[in-house]
Simulated assay, not measured.
Amino acid sequence: MMKANQKPKPHAPPRPLFSCGFFRRCTQSVLSPTSPHQQQPRRKPTTTSSSSSSSSTSTSQSFTQWRFPHHLDPTPSTAPPPPPPPPPPPLPVTTTLQETFQIAELHLTSVSESDKLLALQLLERVVVPDPPSDPTCPPGLMRCLVSCLRSNNKIVTAKYVTKILLALCLAEGNRHVAVEAGAARAVIETAAGLEISAVERALAALELMCTTAEGAAEVRGHAMTVPAMVAVMARLAGRGREYAISILSIVYGKAGGGGDSGEEIAVAPAEEVARAVALALEGECTARGRRKGAQLLKTLEEYGRLDLSQNGT
């Protein structure tokens, strides 16, 4: 029993569950990489709290750097790009046309594409503004032009080649040279892949080549002539459509110097060609093209009846 004058002992305060200073600090303020640190009362640093604080700070910085990476400076570099190399100087224009042909042929036989382009530009400057009537284009130069038309770089070279070929074919002597060099076959086989302006000039040159007997025979005997002309006729208008109709008339008719030579004629079904021609005549076409188209439709009608009568016998 307790004595009457003895006071009861005060109970000691309950001991906290964790006495770690770091845990006590964490419970007082929640650390977050996105919230500002609250001002804490100044404490006397100890070894344990210093190491814990350093660990907590490095952890917070690591998390912040991972969550919010440093971005590169989006400002573009102010250094100017290197200037492109200067284009080669153009080939000089010589005093005679034959010398120009020789220089152009020499450069067109080179393996360098830039040399070929310079030669085509030289011929364009000399031949196109003033088409020559004499002397005749050398066969070697004409073969080089045909090779350029067939090259993989048609988009660049065809613009020059078709201009030069048309200007040269204005002279009758050059039409024979062009056909012998394979220009007629090259135009037929590449027309579908040329741009509008280039294919119009190519067909104009082909029509001029067909004024020779060998040119008309080449066009009639080529299996791709009719499908190629039908395809480009749908793309073209005006004079381009007129040229395509004229070449089809040469295939099915006796125009162009072919005569009754008896050469083999490669044709498509007359009904399909007639439908394509009639559709072309409904659009934009020249007066000459409409006259040739009307004559071609009559020829195709007779040709179709001839085929039917032959099949019936």
Rank of each mutant, 00 (worst) to 15 (best):
N152P: 01
S151V: 04
A167M: 08
P138W: 02
Y160L: 15
E207D: 12
L165S: 09
L145T: 04
N152F: 01
A186M: 04
D130S: 13
R143F: 04
K163D: 01
P139T: 06
P131T: 10
K163A: 09
A178N: 02
G193P: 02
A191L: 03
S147R: 15
S133R: 12
I164L: 03
I155P: 01
C144Q: 14
L166R: 13
H176D: 10
A191V: 00
G182Y: 03
A183V: 00
R185Y: 07
L141V: 11
P135C: 11
E195V: 01
V187A: 02
K159N: 14
R150A: 05
P131I: 10
A191G: 02
A202N: 00
A183C: 02
A186C: 03
E180M: 07
K154F: 10
H176V: 14
V161F: 00
L203Q: 04
A171L: 07
L194C: 04
E207P: 00
H176Q: 12
A178S: 11
V177W: 04
V187M: 02
A202S: 06
E189Q: 15
L194R: 03
A204K: 12
R175T: 12
G140V: 08
V161G: 00
A202T: 03
K163C: 08
V187I: 15
L145C: 06
R143W: 01
E200C: 12
V161N: 08
V156T: 13
V146Y: 01
R143E: 11
A205T: 01
S151P: 08
E207A: 13
I164E: 04
E200S: 09
L170I: 14
A167D: 04
A167Q: 08
R185N: 01
I155R: 15
P138A: 08
K163I: 00
V187F: 05
R175M: 06
E207H: 13
C137S: 06
A191Q: 04
E172I: 13
T190G: 00
R175W: 07
K154L: 08
V177P: 06
G173M: 14
E207N: 12
P135I: 09
L206W: 05
V187C: 00
L194T: 00
E189F: 02
V187G: 03
V179W: 03
I196T: 11
N153S: 07
G173Q: 15
Y160H: 15
D130M: 11
A158F: 06
S133A: 11
K159G: 13
K163T: 05
K159S: 14
V187T: 08
I155A: 14
P138D: 02
P135N: 02
V199M: 10
M142A: 10
D134M: 09
E189S: 09
P131A: 14
A181G: 01
C148K: 09
K159E: 15
C148Y: 03
E172Q: 15
T136D: 05
C144S: 15
E200N: 13
I196R: 13
L208W: 06
P138L: 04
L141C: 02
H176A: 13
M209T: 00
L168M: 05
G193S: 14
T190S: 08
A192R: 13
C137W: 03
N153E: 10
P129E: 09
R143S: 15
K163H: 06
C169K: 10
R143Y: 07
L166V: 07
R201P: 00
L166T: 09
L141W: 07
L145D: 05
Y160Q: 15
S133K: 12
P139Y: 04
V177M: 01
D134K: 11
E200M: 09
L145R: 06
S197Y: 07
G140H: 03
